[in-house]
Write a protein that binds this DNA or RNA. Structure first.
Length: 203
DNA sequence: GTAGAGATGTGCT
DNA sequence: GCACATCTCTACT
């Protein structure tokens, strides 16, 4: 996976279907990415790095591509993969996954929830997979959080739409920087009548 | 199942 | 104090 020599939008689209792996002491969680959002650094009013903002909490965004940026929000934890070269603060937010291994433990982590409620939101899948803020600033595949681009899947169809939870940000509110696997039931805010069985959304 | 309000913690101002 | 890249619950269809 090349996190540097492509635009952040291309990377966000290519991450759909990639296998994400989190190894803990007791169990290994895996799943497939089904929803991402691109944040385009200094020019993007919705990005934490807008206008070159560089405070302690966003400094991971300024690292080189492949670094993990973890940000807490309303008691939740959100995970981004940093893109581009060092000093260019762009990244891809991981919003939802289809769980594969460790589902029973995910259900316990999620207070007994089952089905799509396990991982169909950015704060939900981090809770289900027990991802911790300690990963902020570390690199992908260097520690317990990894991606597998060999045993990955490929979406039949990719859908673009405006990003979620980004109001009043001028033209950036409506920009189609959100990428989803078309029809996938684990995509956040999806209507159930619009979704297909998981197996039918992959090539 | 859907829509809307309230609850929350962290970090910046 | 306030703004948030959110979640959950309640009330209603």
């Amino acid at each position: 996976m090349d996190f540097i020599n492509r635009t952040t939008e291309e990377i966000a689209a290519d991450l759909l279907g990639v296998k994400i792996i989190h190894e803990t002491d007791d169990i290994v969680y895996t799943g497939y990415i089904v929803e991402t959002e691109a944040y385009i650094g200094k020019h993007d009013q919705a990005a934490h790095s807008f206008n070159g903002r560089n405070t302690k909490s966003v400094k991971s965004l300024y690292c080189e591509g492949g670094t993990i940026y973890a940000h807490s929000m309303h008691k939740q934890l959100l995970i981004n993969f940093v893109t581009q070269v060092e000093g260019e603060p762009q990244g891809v937010l991981i919003r939802a996954i289809e769980p594969e291994h460790g589902i029973e433990q995910m259900s316990l982590n999620r207070n007994g929830k089952t089905g799509i409620e396990l991982t169909n939101g950015p704060g939900k899948f981090t809770q289900a997979m027990q991802i911790s803020k300690a990963l902020d600033g570390t690199k992908l595949n260097a520690n317990c959080l990894k991606i597998d681009t060999t045993n990955r899947r490929y979406p039949k169809q990719i859908e673009r739409s405006a990003r979620i939870g980004v109001p009043n940000k001028g033209i950036w509110t409506d920009k189609p920087l959100r990428f989803t696997v078309a029809g996938h039931p684990y995509v956040s805010k999806a209507r159930k009548r619009d979704s297909l069985p998981c197996a039918e959304t992959w090539k």
